[in-house]
C-alpha cells in the first residue's frame, strides 16, 4: 500500500498531467494524417493552439443555461477522474477492488455528458449525433467491458493494478489475445474518429453533437476527447501490453506505448472511411461474439 501523501500527490498531479499532455495527441494524429496525405501538416502543438484559440472566442449559442454550462465540466471531469484510477504498471495509489467498473462507468458518463450537451442544444443535427453516439455506446461499451472481464476472470480480481501484474507474470493466453484484439477494435469508437466518428460526422451532420457548441464549451468538449484518447489508450496499453518496470521507466514506457498505439489508430483513421451506423452495429455484434468466446475460453482456463 502506498501512503496517503503519495495518493494525494497522485490525485493532484495526474489530472494536471492528463490535461497537459493529452492535446499533444491531437497534433500527433493530424501530423500523421498530413504525412499520409503527403502534406506538411500542422505543428505538433496544434491541439494546444486550438484550445487557446477556442477559449478566447465569443460564446455564440442558442441555449445557455445551468445544465449546458455544467455538462462540459461533467464530461471533462469524469474523463480525467477515470484516468486517476488507472495504473502505471503496478503502481496505482487510488486502486481499489472495483476500479475497473468505476473506470468503465466514468468513461460512459463522459460520453453521456457529451451526448446530453448535443441534445440540450435543441438542434436536430445535434440530436441526431447524440442518438447515434448512444446507439454506438450500446454496442461498444459491452465489448470493451467483456474484454476487460476476460482479464478480470483470468486474474480473479477487478483491481486494475493486480490485473496488470497478473498479465505481466503469466503472459498471453488464447483468451487474453482474443480479448486484446476486441478491446483494440472497441477502442476506436471511444476515440470518436474515423471509421466510427458517427456522432460528429462533419460531412453529414456538420459536427453533430458539437454543432452548437462554441467558445470555451467547445474547447472543453475537445479537451474531453483528447483526455479520453489518452486514457483509453493508456488503459489498453497497460492491460494488454503489460510490462512491469521500476518507477521512472514504467512512466516512460507508458508514454512510448501510448504514442505507438495511438499512432496505429491514427493511421487506421486515415486509411478507413466512415462506417454507417448499421455497419458499425453489425461489426460490433460480431466482435461481441468474438469476445464472448474469449470469455468462455477464459472460464475453461485457456
Amino acid at each position: 500500500m502506498v501512503s496517503w501523501q503519495v495518493a494525494l500527490a497522485w490525485a493532484i498531479v495526474t489530472p494536471l498531467m492528463l490535461l497537459a499532455i493529452s492535446p499533444f495527441l491531437d497534433g500527433l494524429a493530424r501530423k500523421i494524417r498530413a504525412r499520409l496525405h503527403s502534406r506538411v501538416g500542422p505543428p505538433l502543438t496544434q491541439g494546444y493552439l486550438d484550445l487557446v484559440k477556442l477559449a478566447g472566442k465569443t460564446d455564440v449559442t442558442p441555449t445557455a443555461n445551468a445544465l449546458t454550462n455544467f455538462l462540459p465540466f461533467l464530461a471533462l471531469g469524469s474523463a480525467v477522474t477515470a484516468g486517476v484510477f488507472l495504473p502505471i504498471s503496478d503502481f496505482a495509489p487510488l486502486a481499489f477492488a472495483g476500479d475497473l467498473v468505476v473506470v468503465l462507468y466514468l468513461l460512459g458518463l463522459s460520453t453521456v455528458a457529451v451526448v446530453l450537451g448535443g441534445a440540450a442544444s435543441g438542434n436536430p443535427f445535434g440530436f441526431l449525433g447524440a442518438a447515434r453516439e448512444l446507439q454506438l455506446l450500446l454496442f461498444v461499451e459491452p465489448v470493451l467491458a467483456f474484454a476487460l472481464f476476460v482479464l478480470a476472470v483470468k486474474s480473479g480480481t477487478f483491481r486494475l493494478s493486480e490485473i496488470v501484474v497478473w498479465h505481466a507474470q503469466n503472459g498471453y493466453t488464447l483468451s487474453t489475445v482474443l480479448a486484446g484484439i476486441s478491446a483494440f477494435s472497441a477502442m476506436l469508437p471511444y476515440f470518436g474518429k474515423l471509421p466510427f466518428d458517427l456522432a460528429e460526422a462533419e460531412q453529414e451532420l456538420m459536427g453533430g453533437v458539437l454543432l452548437e457548441q462554441a467558445s470555451w464549451r467547445l474547447a472543453l468538449y475537445r479537451w474531453t476527447f483528447f483526455v479520453k484518447w489518452f486514457i483509453v489508450t493508456w488503459l489498453f496499453c497497460e492491460l494488454f501490453l503489460p510490462v512491469i518496470a521500476p518507477f521512472p521507466f514504467n512512466l516512460l514506457l507508458l508514454l512510448v506505448k501510448v504514442v505507438v498505439v495511438f499512432s496505429i489508430a491514427s493511421v487506421l483513421e486515415t486509411l478507413l472511411a466512415r462506417l454507417r451506423l448499421d455497419h458499425a452495429r453489425a461489426f460490433f455484434i460480431h466482435v461481441a461474439f468474438f469476445v464472448l468466446f474469449a470469455l468462455a475460453f477464459a472460464l475453461i482456463g485457456a
Binding site: P15, L76, T81, P124
Partner: peptide
C-alpha cells in the same frame, strides 16, 4: 480537483450571445 483546474484554465464568466439554432 478537475473542476478547479479547468475553471482556472477557462477563466472568468462571459456573457454568451444568443443566436437562433443553426440549420
Amino acid at each position: 480537483v478537475v473542476l478547479a483546474f479547468v475553471a482556472i484554465a477557462v477563466g472568468t464568466e462571459r456573457q454568451p450571445r444568443k443566436v437562433p439554432i443553426w440549420l
